[in-house]
Simulated assay, not measured.
Amino acid sequence: MSLKAQINEDMKAAMRAKETARLSALRLLLAAIKQKEVDERIELDDAAVITVVDKMLKQRRDSVTQYEAAQRFDLASAERFEIDVLTAYKPAGLTVEQIAAEVDAAIAATGAASAADMGKLMAVLKPKLAGKADMAEVSKLVKSRLSN
């Protein structure tokens, strides 16, 4: 079953169980997926759906920090619940050691030696690690490896 179909089934289950908060989060996710499909006139595969989930997770995390800064803990709590719902659709992430091994392999494969080669290195790493690792953390690791 595709990830999109799984989300649809989970939405139906939430509807039957009358879980309004979960249903709302799943409807937002399906709306974002549908919007992407309409905009690009394509049917999204699992990798593209994961990209949409990642984008929504990033938005929710940003919202949580802003709500907490504004002392709106009720809204931050609602965003955290949506983060929990969305996280269920992400594949298992890689460990720090696995990410470091991928970075080292990419450095060896590309011959990157300085910070000027970072773009070339990230272009190799992004397809391998997208959806499995936080690319901001990967970028920090690459910078530290190239500066040594």
Rank of each mutant, 00 (worst) to 15 (best):
M1R: 14
M1C: 04
S2C: 15
L3T: 11
L3C: 10
L3R: 14
N8S: 14
N8L: 10
A13H: 09
A13D: 05
A14R: 03
M15V: 09
E19K: 15
L28T: 10
L30N: 05
K34C: 00
Q35P: 03
Q35L: 15
D39L: 10
D39P: 02
E40S: 15
E40R: 07
R41G: 09
R41C: 06
E43K: 13
E43I: 11
L44N: 05
A47Q: 12
A48N: 03
I50L: 01
T51E: 15
T51W: 00
V52H: 01
D54H: 00
K55I: 03
M56Y: 02
K58A: 00
Q59A: 08
Q59Y: 02
S63F: 01
V64E: 00
A70K: 06
D74R: 13
D74E: 07
S77N: 10
E79T: 08
E79Q: 07
R80W: 01
R80F: 01
F81V: 00
F81Y: 12
D84N: 09
T87I: 02
T87E: 11
A88V: 02
Y89P: 01
Y89I: 03
Y89C: 14
K90I: 09
G93I: 11
G93W: 02
L94T: 01
T95V: 06
E97Q: 10
A101V: 09
V103K: 14
A105T: 11
A105F: 08
A109C: 07
T110I: 07
T110F: 12
A115Q: 10
D117R: 01
M118S: 05
L121V: 05
A123M: 01
K126F: 08
K126W: 00
A130Y: 05
A133G: 10
A133Y: 02
M135D: 06
M135Q: 03
E137Q: 09
E137D: 05
S139M: 08
V142D: 10
V142F: 02
K143E: 11
K143P: 00
R145H: 13
